[in-house]
């Protein structure tokens, strides 16, 4: 399936950050769409764009990941979950349907070319959306990601080419978090991982949750470049 041809806009692109919702994708397909949009953004063929997707089950390793952070390779093999290396920052993480993944394709030239501020933007947008949903979300000093008390709920890992961003942040919503027990998520040992469903005690309407996240990304994005 050629997701690029779908070009699904969800009607939230009234601001300067366009939204491209891919639905459920294979990781490799979404990666190619990211690269296509990245090249178009570099040549100013498209505006800053927020790609939204859910991935079919996969474990991904970032550029500095150690294989030793996958604690139980057999578990993933037994469950037909592939393991792939990718070119983002960050360490190991897991994706599956029910988890929302956001890949902003954004020109950081308007942000003072500050990657740390951009990662702050990702985490603050996610944290605000989670709080609106009812999750007691917070950021922890010197540790990246978004947390629900001592449980990690969102994971960042980005890449930058010609000061345009790709890759981004994933948020556990309705997905089973059991696979995270078989790795050191983000390279951190002995951490707990949670989801919106676990925090609120019920499965969520993913489209409603997606709209809330997109609204916060767009709002924070406009505040950032203003």
């Amino acid at each position: 399936m050629d997701y690029a041809d779908q070009n699904v806009e969800r009607g939230l692109s009234g601001g300067r950050l366009a939204v491209l919702d891919l639905g459920v994708t294979r990781y490799g397909d979404a990666f190619r769409i990211q690269l296509d949009n990245l090249e178009k953004r570099i040549t100013r063929g498209i505006p800053d764009t927020l790609i939204v997707t859910e991935h079919e089950p996969i474990v991904t390793l970032g550029r500095l990941s150690s294989d030793s952070n996958i604690l139980n390779t057999k578990y993933f093999g037994d469950n037909s979950i592939s393991i792939e290396r990718t070119n983002r920052g960050g360490d190991v993480t897991y994706h599956a349907p029910g988890q929302l993944v956001f890949y902003p394709i954004v020109d950081l030239s308007a942000w003072g070319r500050d990657i740390a501020t951009y990662i702050d933007f990702l985490e603050i947008s996610v944290m605000k959306a989670l709080i609106e949903i009812g999750v007691c979300a917070e950021r922890i000093r010197d540790v990246r990601g978004v947390w629900a008390r001592d449980r990690k709920i969102a994971f960042t890992g980005v890449a930058v080419k010609k000061w345009i961003t790709y890759h981004g942040v994933s948020v556990n919503v309705n997905n089973d978090v059991e696979p995270f027990r078989h790795m050191n998520p983000c390279g951190i040992k002995n951490i707990k991982v949670t989801s919106v469903m676990n925090e609120l005690g019920a499965s969520q309407d993913l489209n409603r949750i997606k709209d809330i996240f997109c609204r916060h990304f767009i709002s924070n994005f406009e505040n950032q470049i203003r």
């Binding site: 500095l64 983002r88 990657i115 990246r144 890992g157 980005v158």
Partner: peptide, 15 residues
Amino acid sequence: GEPLAEVVTDKASFD
């Protein structure tokens, strides 16, 4: 404009 090298921080890779 050609990529010369790649560097990586905790959460970001950069050409």
